[in-house]
């Protein structure tokens, strides 16, 4: 054990002050499910660690009317909290696939943003919702798009912490008749397993035309990210022939992916599975969409 000091701040302010004082030397954990395994295995020897479990950063501001008003999720909210909320079914579904009960009581949504394929599936569901990340220091705050944050290498200053995740208000424009979301995780077994691929989508329908879509992929790259290629196929398309539409979007997502290769699955297999899983997800989502009256 080489850890010199373990800080357990009891407020966000205290946490931000500690981060300002120690900068990148201070390693941050919340649930511990990402960093503690590495420390236990002797792969990582941090000297200064800060734990955010008791920093009170796990508040949820949800609008149970569902689609009006944005949602604010505290960064140290746990997967169990995500399963218990009902405003965002897609987040319930994503949280369900992360570890077992005990791990879900510990793992946090902010920590999940710093995991990498074959893990980090919660971020995939957040991407489909168009989430943003609030990053604070003791003296500043900024809000960045989650997709830019992830694909840009999670750029943060030495004194900053991820403090909140924002879910934007869903488009309430009159011509949008329905908004549907969906998430699928595909792994070697149903529970508590590394991910081969995960796919998530949000689709705004205006009658039978896709007004807007967000497609997010896990395992398709070195980080979870949106798939502009699949979105381009879907946006403004008619859902009349939903089978070929889903197939075309899934193909575009697979063709434009650069999957990782590891012991769980090869890049080749992941690319095949992105196509299969996204095709199934889109097919199920569009089929279940209530036909406009």
């Amino acid at each position: 054990m080489t850890v010199r000091t373990y800080y357990t701040p009891e407020s966000m302010q205290e946490a931000l002050e500690l981060k300002a004082r120690h900068g990148f030397d201070l390693h941050v954990i919340a649930g511990g499910t990402l960093l503690m395994p590495q420390i236990n295995d002797g792969l990582f020897f941090p000297e200064l660690v800060m734990g955010l479990r008791n920093a009170g950063m796990d508040k949820l501001t949800l609008n149970d009317a569902g689609l009006s008003g944005r949602g604010i999720l505290g960064a140290t909210s746990t997967m169990s909290q995500m399963r218990a909320q009902t405003t965002y079914p897609i987040l319930q579904e994503a949280a369900k696939g992360i570890g077992g009960w005990a791990v879900q009581n510990m793992a946090t949504i902010g920590g999940n943003l710093f995991n990498q394929p074959p893990y980090g599936d919660f971020a995939v569901a957040l991407l489909a919702l168009g989430a943003q990340v609030k990053i604070q220091s003791a003296s500043s705050e900024r809000v960045v798009d989650l997709n830019e944050f992830l694909t840009g290498g999670r750029q943060m200053a030495a004194n900053e912490l991820v403090t909140e995740i924002h879910i934007p208000e869903q488009v309430a424009a009159g011509f949008i008749t329905q908004t549907i979301t969906g998430f699928k995780k595909f792994g070697p077994r149903a529970a508590s397993a590394a991910t081969i691929v995960s796919v998530a989508a949000q689709i705004d329908l205006a009658e039978d035309v896709i007004e807007n879509s967000r497609i997010a992929l896990g395992g398709a790259d070195t980080t979870a990210r949106r798939s502009p290629a699949a979105e381009a196929v879907l946006n403004n398309a008619s859902t009349q022939d939903l089978e070929s539409l889903a197939a075309a979007a899934a193909r575009a997502a697979a063709d434009s992916s650069e999957p990782i290769s590891n012991a769980t699955a090869s890049a080749w297999y992941r690319r095949q599975m992105i196509e299969v899983q996204l095709k199934h997800l889109l097919g199920e989502m569009l089929e279940s969409a209530v036909p406009a009256a």
């Binding site: 503690m36 395994p37 734990g51 791990v103």
Partner: peptide, 29 residues
């Protein structure tokens, strides 16, 4: 496993299961 993957170290904290191998003792003050 000391990785949170096997569940053999599960204890209850305030009645809820947690894996004690990943839980800093100071957090349960």
């Amino acid at each position: 496993c000391s990785q949170g993957g096997c569940g053999s170290c599960t204890v209850l904290v305030n009645g809820e299961p947690m894996v004690s191998c990943l839980l800093p003792a100071k957090d349960i003050e």
